[in-house]
């Protein structure tokens, strides 16, 4: 069998036209009147990529390149182990390429929506609690320096908040901090290690204990479910995936196809976490025998106090860190008027 190609001697940038002759007795490269014996069995066969010629690199560093399709046959004749070339076969067919085109977005979508959340949940439990509490102090410092000011409420509000928290936190795992919200307005936050910040503005809106209970239970839900760690892990997964796909073209495509979708997905995760925390709040309310209507009631009040500048028609829902209030109130399965009426103990 004769395959035409080029021979490259070792250590020299020379290309010589040559013919690889293979038969049962051995193999030679013939170049004009020169004849080189070569050991095909010991040669390294390059992996195939597109139309690139395949190379045989011999033990001494010399190389023979050929486009001849019969190379595989020649290798078998010479007793060489067969190269798989599986990936090349996939790349070479439009059918497989189109299949990959259909599967990839589906897989990426599945990974982002189900895969990363699934992986992040058990992974988040590995982060040591001590590490988290060090962070709490740091975040609180930043918040106190830039956003929050000391509470201006009287003691009755504080006592009420402490009493309500004690009702659902018998172990004393959570630390209640009351601050004037300023730009944050009526709001509540949870820090990763379990500090719960409630603003004066929110406490002033609370009429029933049940409303405050619902808010605190929601924030405790964030802490218990380790939403902050999970958010970091999941978002990192998304960012790595997308930059792996489109990362090396230029700054603009990077922004539009990597950073922007990452932020949108991060917001989607955030909405999912809010739903989880809401579900936790509703469970706690049920345990305490408090009507779910109390949650509906306080959600309505918070919405009213903050809706000044907000879009309420839901067309920008994908840009929001929280699900729409209508959806959240709907999920309580109860009406605001129910708050305070039902008080049957468990």
């Amino acid at each position: 069998m004769e395959l035409s190609g080029h021979y490259f001697p070792p250590g020299r940038s020379q290309r010589l036209d040559g013919i690889l002759c293979v038969d049962a007795a051995g193999s030679w490269i013939v170049m004009g009147d020169r004849r080189l014996a070569c050991d095909l069995r010991a040669a390294e066969v390059s992996e195939r990529v597109a139309r690139m010629p395949r190379s045989l690199t011999f033990a001494d560093g010399g190389r023979f390149d050929t486009q001849d399709e019969r190379l595989d046959e020649a290798l078998i004749v010479a007793g060489h182990a067969r190269a798989s070339g599986l990936v090349h076969r996939l790349e070479n067919r439009w059918l497989w390429a189109l299949l990959a085109l259909a599967l990839t977005p589906a897989l990426v979508f599945g990974l982002m929506h189900y895969g990363f959340p699934l992986i992040a949940k058990p992974l988040s439990a590995v982060v040591p609690p001590a590490a988290v509490s060090a962070l709490d102090a740091h975040i609180l410092e930043i918040l106190d320096d830039h956003l929050l000011t000391p509470s201006e409420l009287d003691d009755s509000h504080r006592e009420r908040a402490a009493r309500v928290l004690a009702q659902i936190d018998s172990q004393g795992e959570y630390r209640l901090l009351i601050r004037k919200g300023g730009a944050l307005g009526a709001n509540a936050l949870a820090l990763p290690a379990g500090a719960l910040i409630v603003t004066d503005e929110l406490l002033e809106q609370v009429e029933q204990d049940g409303e405050l209970l619902a808010v605190l239970a929601h924030e405790i839900g964030h802490v218990r479910e380790r939403h902050s760690v999970r958010q970091i892990l999941q978002t990192a997964g998304v960012a790595l995936t997308l930059s792996g796909l489109f990362g090396d073209l230029n700054g603009v495509t990077d922004t539009l196809l990597v950073s922007l979708p990452t932020v949108l997905q991060q917001l989607a995760y955030s909405r999912d976490f809010e739903r989880e925390a809401d579900a936790h709040a509703l469970r706690v309310l049920a345990e305490q025998g408090v009507s779910a209507g109390c949650y509906a009631s306080i959600l309505g009040k918070l919405e009213a106090s903050q809706s000044g500048a907000k879009e309420t028609d839901g067309s920008y829902a994908f840009l929001s860190s929280h699900p729409g209030t209508a959806e959240r109130v709907g999920a309580t399965g109860s009406a605001a008027q129910e708050c305070g009426r039902v008080a049957k103990p468990d």
Partner: peptide
Amino acid sequence: EYFRVWIVNVLLSVVTLGIYS
């Protein structure tokens, strides 16, 4: 031609959670 190389390798990378990348 490069499209086929690219998309097949992207799929394999996603399936192997980045290891094949």
